[in-house]
Design a protein around this nucleic acid. Structure first.
Lengths: 201, 201
DNA sequence: TTCATTAGTTATTGCCGTATAACTTAATCG
DNA sequence: CGATTAAGTTATACGGCAATAACTAATGAA
């Protein structure tokens, strides 16, 4: 028999394995047996670390929400609202790159139809991102960096749309490689379009 | 016992019910029992009309692809590339409005892991939409309606991004009501941004 | 009216996924 | 070093879902 690992380590292994398998097979195709197999364990072993499957997803959600929130507050390191916007969007794209299962999880139906818990928590964190973008667009507008005759909500939607478009792209084509470059370029262009400049490229 | 319906009618009923249930519960939560219940039938009755579950999804896919393709060719009724672009995007948004389950189906994993069939067919139809948008942007650019220093691919991505953003929005908030208005406004703005104008709104 | 057809039924099978119970042994600590 | 804890095992129960078999009755044509 192999060496055993402490609970904390296994818990983390399981959590990350779920994210891996969720991208490969789709979140609700992930079974406890799959997780165990990939970790070289038997299926019931999982239940030594989590009381039930919902709790595994809770753990995954915790991880993702923490990363999202960290990203949002990281933007505060800069002063220029435009830079902050770049920071927010790129951070989010980097997150999608690292955890490509995120869009599908965001959209995932709760296994337990009744409980609001799982998906809505990620959505709340993502809502925070949208709020942050909104705020910075508003600031950029008062500072004269963005056309003042554009509606703040619409600008927000267009910028968030870049992220959403990229997310859906990931959902469809499953290629995290070219992802960051394309996203970076699109963000730059969209910001240029919104910004008061005559030059492009 | 109730009145019976001819096979063709039931087949259509089943197909549409799947779309309805797919939006309510998520595509891969749709069971044959659910479909039957909602139609006032027993579960095995479904199998009088479809040999297996895959074939039900094939039928749904047929319906969706036909609608997508129809929408794409409908744009040819107009001459101005910008009008055609509006036509393409709005048509697609209308489709999302009518069949709000579409994004999730597009992204759905094939029940039968091996077969490429289902999802990829919808994706191919959607690819046709993107091609059409690309073509018209290119035309609009040569006619001087869109800034010539913008890359065609990037413009395409930004415009498709509007649709994708709206699709993901539908996926997340499940509110087809405000959908068309918001989409229409965003499309207008994005086109304005891409178009050679100094005025907005 | 009768008969073939076929939309529908009830009963049942088999698979797969979650979860539990009971047992085993590696790791840790006094 | 011996005893306790806890990470892991095998075996199994239970439920949900796709699919089939065998039977029943509505409908439409001869």
């Amino acid at each position: 028999m192999r060496t055993r690992k402490p609970a904390a380590v296994r818990k983390a292994e399981i959590t990350h394995m779920v994210l891996e398998l969720a991208f490969e097979n789709g979140p609700d195709r992930v079974t406890t047996a799959m997780i165990a197999d990939r970790l070289g364990l038997t299926q019931p072993a999982i239940y030594k670390h989590f009381p039930n499957k919902d709790d595994i997803w809770r753990s995954v959600t915790d991880l993702l929400c923490e990363r999202i929130d960290t990203n949002i507050s990281a933007a505060n390191d800069h002063h220029d609202p435009i830079v902050r916007l770049q920071c927010l969007v790129m951070g989010q794209l980097r997150l999608l790159h690292d955890y490509p299962a995120l869009p599908e999880i965001m959209v995932m139906r709760d296994p337990n139809a009744g409980t609001t818990a799982l998906r809505s928590r990620v959505l709340t964190s993502m809502g925070g991102l949208k709020d942050a973008i909104h705020k910075n667009i508003s600031q950029a507008q008062t500072q004269g960096q963005i056309h003042s005759d554009l509606d703040v909500d619409d600008c927000t939607n267009l910028l968030v749309g870049v992220v959403q478009g990229m997310a859906l792209r990931l959902l469809r084509f499953r290629e995290p490689e070219t992802f960051l470059n394309t996203g970076k370029r699109l963000l730059k262009i969209q910001l240029n379009l919104l910004t008061k400049k005559e030059e492009f490229k």
